[in-house]
């Protein structure tokens, strides 16, 4: 997609700084909180800059409506959904094709870390609501889901975290926001569980050479290691706010 860039918008300055002043490897300011909802068995709020996602986990439980359950493990149900007011123009609340796809890739990012074989014939529901979208919503959603699962006491192999790496004006940058996504050349969302060395979500929209791809993946994993550290601090203290710099 070639969308015309507004005049005067500089994505990477001659000094190598991004349009919001970050260096290529910097995250946006991160905020994490667990136990934000009373009803859910586990819940979390995650902010990457202006991107804001809440997660709630219900289960393992019997589903509310009769539903074919798996005999050897828990069924994971994941819904990624954007609030109508989360975007510049109102988003219809009906699930879009994009939301259907993202619900699937997020579920598949969580399946490898949930010890679902501990709870056969049950369902674990993970509901993700994007309250404000400014790029990186699916990766913030994975981070929020990871925290909410831990907050619910669902056994997991390791915590997962997500971040999107992009290429803007030829430069690889971590945690791209909406502006960088819209006018950049590539967007690569990644989720991983660094403690067990497992990449659980990997998508690429855009063009990268082999070398750029490896470098981008490496940058993503470094950032995710930091995000998962923040998740651990959040689970110990309930709340964490951190600047974006390394």
């Amino acid at each position: 997609m070639v969308v015309k860039r507004p005049e005067g918008l500089v994505l990477v300055s001659p000094e190598g700084l991004r349009h919001d002043g970050r260096r290529p490897e910097d995250l946006r300011p991160v905020k994490m909180e667990v136990g934000v909802f009373k009803n859910a068995d586990g819940s979390a709020l995650v902010e990457y800059g202006k991107t804001r996602v809440v997660a709630a986990v219900y289960g393992p439980r019997e589903p509310l409506q009769r539903f074919p359950l798996l005999p050897d493990k828990a069924t994971l149900r994941v819904r990624y959904h954007m609030a109508p007011f989360s975007t510049e123009e109102r988003k219809s609340p009906a699930p879009s094709r994009r939301e259907v796809e993202l619900s699937k890739v997020i579920r598949e990012a969580l399946e490898p870390i949930v010890l679902s074989e501990e709870y056969p014939r049950t369902v674990i529901d993970i509901f993700l609501e994007v309250l404000q979208a400014d790029g990186g919503t699916r990766t913030a959603a994975v981070t929020a889901a990871s925290l909410a699962l831990a907050d619910a006491g669902v056994p997991i192999r390791a915590l997962v975290g997500g971040v999107a790496v992009g290429k803007v004006d030829g430069v690889l940058v971590v945690d791209i926001d909406e502006t960088e996504d819209m006018y950049g050349e590539a967007d690569m969302p990644v989720a991983a569980a660094p403690d067990i060395g497992l990449i659980t979500l990997l998508q690429l929209n855009g063009v990268l050479s082999r070398e750029e791809f490896n470098r981008a993946l490496d940058m993503a994993l470094t950032a995710i290691t930091r995000i998962v550290e923040l998740e651990k601090r959040t689970l110990r203290s309930g709340y964490v706010e951190a600047g974006g710099e390394e």
Binding site: V105, R107, E108, E111, P112, M188, A192, A193, G197, L198, I199, T200, L201, L202, Q203, L204, N205, G206, V207, L208, S209, R210, F213, N214, L217, D218, L221
Partner: peptide
């Protein structure tokens, strides 16, 4: 030209960095 122009992990498992590199 042999450039990578898209990618998608699909399925319920995961991959290591090295496995992704070998897969590419």
């Amino acid at each position: 030209k042999g450039r990578i122009v898209g990618m998608q992990k699909t399925g319920a498992g995961g991959l290591s960095f090295d496995e992704v590199d070998r897969a590419v």
